[in-house]
Design a protein around this nucleic acid. Structure first.
Lengths: 363, 363
DNA sequence: ACCTCACATGAATCGGCGG
DNA sequence: TCCGCCGATTCATGTGAGG
């Protein structure tokens, strides 16, 4: 197992993606983000209605002889990527209709387990100039665990916070990478044809990694993955075939200042907070043993035991078990069911007592 | 070739989808909408595109066998669907990440040509109750022509009108099928687990068919495709294996009243207007021979010939050729370039004269 | 300083018809 | 089948010049 010491952390490996992946130890990175060639099959020029020419992706690296050749390439690098991925790691892919279906099938056939497909809705896509199709206004990401039974990280609370305290959906509305963020040469010409916006990687990295973890990008290109990883206090490993792109990415990354504040990086996740059993509230006297809890409608009341169990008539057990028994429900979240009497005669949800502990308001 | 008379127009064929497709003549329908099952609970024969039989379905399939069986089933019915589709027809598929990648690859491998993938963004998706993934808030449609070189119908103007006079994008925001639209049995239980909203089919049918054309749904289910087709003045052919669903769909369709007004169904499209050559404007005296045309900035002027050609210095030819030559552009739409002098001394685009003829304002 | 307008540009599988 | 001509077609952003 890699200890981290034998990994090329925060470096860019210049060379072929499959060979570079083979040089890495197995089960060594926490996440992979890959933006592989799209296999666009463009034929003639495209002009805008004002007769200006669209600057299309016509690079050699995007040319494949056939679907079969593209599939073989995809499966080769995905196989190595899976080997390098930790058992609890996840992999992100991005593509468009030209290639994303083939990538998805390759993932499934290689035993990855798809968790979500995610739609990047472009705020400002290029219009369809000829009026022959729908405006191609999105790209598709696939998020997958290493296997069906794999554990994986999903920073649910961080995503919910990012989305105004509503669950993050599978469709993300994010502008294209333009303006000052876009890398350009001295003449002002874009350096890379498909530079991804940092906002997209911000969400990907925040959702699926923790500070200090390692994210690998086998098609680093202009270096967006590495730049955002560094800013968010994650380690990166980049692989890029083109020395020019690698050099530009390295310069870009060097200019990034990581977020200094540990507090800004640690997003509170209920799941990761030390679990506070109900008994601790009793132990600390927030809810005294022997006091009574009520449901919201005051239809039921129960007595708090010194061991953190409740008793209500014939029923005894955890706050969850007793709640479920009274409601005749298969399960019940006791934290959201039981209220304690306040000195003023009102009711206060027991989860609020727990929140005080989690927020450090109670010693 | 089907004349329409030998087709089961506006009927539901109850039975196996592949057999029913085989009973239809080739190149006979204008569009296909398919919402195939992806639960892998396949019964009956599965045949590969080469007509070989897939091994019997039993319970101890591993995952590969399941994917392989689903792929074989998909390719079998898609092969028949492609045979039945007219050369200028298009096919729509809908699915989620469990199956849509496999369907997309099958399409590409069978020589369909993908025109767009379209995202149905659900206004009201089911939340992710466990908080372990992103809320699955969309499904994916694929829109494909029969082949790379195929002509196909795209009612661009209708889609633009539907979207506040902006190009229709590839992401559609549409609510789930709920409330009165949802078919239920006498006990109020939903009749079909995946009934699609009529709004979705409205957009699909409006985009890719003309009134009087034929749309086929090989997995009719609750009959949404047929219901919307009938309302929009299209013919449908439905295939459904389950007699219960077929009966419910038939009752639903019978209650639909088609839109009576031909005007409400008509598709305003400049492309479909009869072509009026510039010479006709000269012929009819709207723009007299010998008069002069100007560009908008009055940088160029040209003399109108009696045969509908323009002359400007050394250049002579059609309104398009002369415009392109003056602009040093590879091409030019003369109708949008040249203006005639009005009696008041202003300029009027020559396309406006043509519009008068198209609108019948000029004899 | 602020507003307006012109211009540039983005992963794009972007014609149809007649001769 | 190929070739040539007709003629239909764009949205959100950012930048920079000019008023």
């Amino acid at each position: 197992m890699g200890t981290g010491l034998d990994l090329p952390l925060d470096q860019i490996l210049v060379g072929d993606c499959i060979e570079a992946l083979r040089s890495l130890p197995p089960a060594s990175v926490h996440a992979i983000f890959a933006d592989p060639p799209y296999n666009l099959q463009l034929r003639g020029d495209l002009r805008r209605p004002d007769d200006s020419l669209v600057d299309a992706v016509d690079d050699d690296w995007d040319k494949y002889d056939s679907f079969a050749a593209y599939d073989a390439f995809s499966r080769a690098w995905l196989t190595e990527a899976r080997r390098v991925l930790r058992r609890d790691g996840t992999l992100w892919l991005i593509g468009a209709y030209h290639n994303i279906f083939r990538l998805g099938v390759a993932l499934q056939d290689l035993d990855f387990w798809i968790l979500n497909d995610v739609i990047w809705r472009k705020a400002n896509p290029m219009p369809n100039f000829r009026g022959r199709r729908f405006t191609n206004a999105h790209e598709t990401l696939i998020w997958a665990a290493r296997g069906q039974e794999s554990k994986y990280r999903f920073n649910y609370a961080a995503m919910k916070s990012l989305n105004d305290d509503q669950q993050m959906r599978s469709d993300w509305f994010i502008p294209l990478c333009t303006g000052a963020e876009r890398l350009r040469d001295a003449a002002g010409v874009k350096l890379h044809p498909t530079q991804k916006p940092e906002a997209l990687l911000h969400r990907v990295i925040l959702a699926s990694t923790a500070p200090g973890e390692i994210i690998l990008d086998p098609f680093l290109g202009s270096g967006t993955t590495a730049a955002v990883a560094k800013r968010l206090g994650r380690h990166f490993i980049g692989i890029e075939r083109d020395p020019g792109y690698a050099a530009a990415a390295a310069a870009r990354i060097a200019a990034i200042a990581p977020i200094a504040s540990a507090a800004a990086l640690s997003l509170p996740s209920k799941r990761e907070q030390p679990r506070v059993p109900f008994g601790v509230l009793v132990e600390r006297g927030l809810i005294p043993a022997g006091s009574r809890l009520q449901d919201r409608a005051r239809r039921y009341s129960a007595t708090v035991g010194a061991d953190g169990t409740l008793r209500c008539g014939a029923f005894a057990g955890s706050i969850h078990k007793v709640g479920a028994a009274l409601m005749e429900a298969p399960s019940c979240n006791g934290w959201a069911f039981w209220y304690a009497e306040t000195p003023g005669g009102g009711l206060r949800l027991i989860d609020e007592f727990r929140a005080e502990i989690n927020q450090g308001l109670v010693a």
